[in-house]
């Protein structure tokens, strides 16, 4: 089980690291306008989210890969993942025209439906890693540093 948890942790961590990195290096305002497409937050809150989310994804992704502050990184990314699912679901229900999910910058364009499936699968992986936290923490820097 710890080996499976290690692989899943690395995959999730890489996913969020890449997602955060591409947003951090994309045009300023690009992610803010992507957020605006979802018609939930606007103004300063959208700007704050556009600033904070990429950094959270990138830094927590690295932490998850390394197994550093594993539980905290896992919870933050899971919360973000849940928020993405809620945002996407309401957009799909309201039939909003989402051209680009904004997940991986401009390199990978996913439709809202594809993104929702990816997010739901990811949510299940987060649940698994959370339920198996002792296994998840097995091959981590945390374990090494706690010695």
């Amino acid at each position: 089980m710890p080996a499976i948890a290690l692989v899943l942790r690395a995959v999730l961590g890489t996913l969020y690291l890449v997602s955060g990195w591409t947003k951090l290096l994309s045009a300023p305002g690009k992610f803010a306008s992507t957020i605006a497409q979802y018609d939930v937050v606007s103004g300063p809150l959208a700007s704050l989210a556009a600033y904070a989310v990429p950094w959270a994804e990138y830094l927590c992704g690295i932490c998850l890969i390394l197994g550093l502050r594993t539980a905290g990184a896992l919870r933050i990314l899971w919360a973000l993942n849940t928020a993405f699912i809620v945002l996407l679901s309401q957009a799909l229900l309201r039939n909003l025209a989402i051209r680009d999910c904004g997940c991986f910058g401009e390199r990978v364009l996913l439709s809202p439906e594809q993104t929702l499936v990816l997010d739901l699968v990811t949510w299940i992986v987060f649940l698994f890693l959370h339920l198996k936290l002792p296994s998840t923490r097995r091959y981590t820097l945390d374990t090494y540093l706690d010695r």
Binding site: Y58, L59, I62, C63, L68, R69
Partner: peptide, 13 residues
């Protein structure tokens, strides 16, 4: 652990 975390986050930033 705190020092390693700070170093990793600063390096990443």
């Amino acid at each position: 652990s705190t020092l390693v975390t700070v170093a990793v986050l600063l390096g990443a930033a």
